[in-house]
Amino acid sequence: MNEADFAALRGAILALPYVRMLGFDIAREDGVLRGQLPFAERLIGNPLVPALHGGVVAALLHFTAAAQVMREARMARLPRVFTCTIEYLASPDLRDSYASASIVTRTRRFANVRVSAWQPHSGKTIAAATMQFLTGQMD
């Protein structure tokens, strides 16, 4: 994936208002896509624990998985998710979180993606998911 292709992929994801509300971004590290969700106050799901909301962790997993599908299926738009199963593995601290994804299997129509998220300050995997996307061109 060259610089222009990565810029187009990142641009397509950051064009979504919901992505900007979260503050999600995607980077490349040694050729690997890495989703990132910098801590922000609005992402807090439990002020007493305290912890990020599970739903925003799901979104970090989702957009990282979607980016991986876009890259491997050479899609210009985000693929549509039709089912997902999210496993929560550790309480997410009020810190920056990251994710990376790998395609388990992909056909012309579907992609099954395994994705996990972690927090570097603790070294803990906070969540993982299997997400299934439609990879055919939508609409």
Binding site: Y18, M21, H62
Partner: peptide, 18 residues
Amino acid sequence: SLVGDPASGEVHECAITT
């Protein structure tokens, strides 16, 4: 701020998951 597709205006699936 919840829109996941600016063309349709639909709310993103992850906001529904949350």
